[in-house]
Amino acid sequence: MKRWHALGLTVPLLAGLAHADYRLETLTEGLEHPWSLAFLPDGRMLVTERPGRLRLIEADGSLRDAPLAGVPEVFAEAQAGLFEVMLAPDFDDSGWLYLSYAYGDISANNTCLARTRFNGEGLSGGEVLFCASPAKRGAAHYGGRMALLPDDTLVLTLGDGFDYREQAQNAGNHLGSLVRLTLDGRVPDDNPFLGDDGARPELYSMGHRNVQGIVYDAARDELLINEHGPRGGDELNLIQPGANYGWPLTTHGVDYTGAQITPFRELPGLTPPLLHWTPSIAPSGMALYHGDAFPDWQGDLFVSALAGQQVRRLVREEGRVVEQQVLFEALDSRIRDVRVGPDGYLYLLTDHADGALVRVVPAS
Rank of each mutant, 00 (worst) to 15 (best):
T257Y: 01
A59P: 01
N244L: 04
D93E: 15
E84S: 14
D255P: 00
F83S: 04
P272I: 11
A140N: 15
A218N: 04
P89E: 05
L46A: 10
D190P: 03
G143W: 04
A114L: 06
P192A: 02
G291T: 10
A15E: 15
V47T: 07
D332L: 00
S304R: 12
E32N: 14
A132S: 13
G16K: 08
E227W: 02
D190V: 04
D196G: 00
L348M: 08
F264H: 15
P134E: 07
R23M: 07
L331V: 06
Q260F: 04
L27E: 12
F193K: 07
G195R: 03
D296M: 11
L129D: 02
G176C: 07
G269R: 11
R209T: 09
I261Q: 11
P12Q: 10
G355F: 09
L113C: 07
P342H: 12
A147P: 02
G308E: 10
A66W: 02
G195E: 05
E323K: 14
D292M: 09
T153D: 04
K136L: 15
L7A: 15
C112G: 15
S177K: 11
A140I: 13
T157M: 11
D196F: 10
A15H: 11
T271F: 00
L56W: 07
E127K: 09
S100H: 12
G8W: 06
A305Y: 05
P273E: 03
P362S: 11
R186C: 03
G299A: 09
V71E: 02
A76Y: 03
L223I: 03
N210D: 14
G213L: 00
G285T: 07
N110G: 09
V155I: 14
G269C: 05
A66T: 15
L154Q: 02
S124M: 02
V211Q: 00
R165D: 04
Y216P: 00
V179G: 09
P89T: 00
Y256D: 01
G120A: 05
Q309D: 02
L249Y: 01
L113K: 13
D190Y: 10
A80S: 14
D163P: 00
G52S: 10
T182W: 04
T111G: 09
R220P: 00
E49I: 11
A15C: 00
Y289S: 11
A243D: 11
L267C: 05
P188V: 08
Y216F: 15
G52M: 09
A330P: 00
E222A: 11
L156V: 15
R137I: 12
S94N: 09
L37A: 04
R145G: 02
D343V: 06
L13Y: 08
A353P: 01
Y22M: 03
A59C: 00
A18C: 01
P192M: 05
Y164S: 03
L306Y: 06
Y103K: 05
G258H: 07
N170S: 13
R3V: 14
L14S: 08
Q240F: 09
G61N: 08
L181C: 11
D42P: 02
A218R: 14
E121A: 15
D332S: 09
E29G: 15
I225P: 02
D197A: 14
L9W: 12
Q309G: 04
N170V: 10
N226D: 15
Q324N: 00
G43H: 10
W297Q: 08
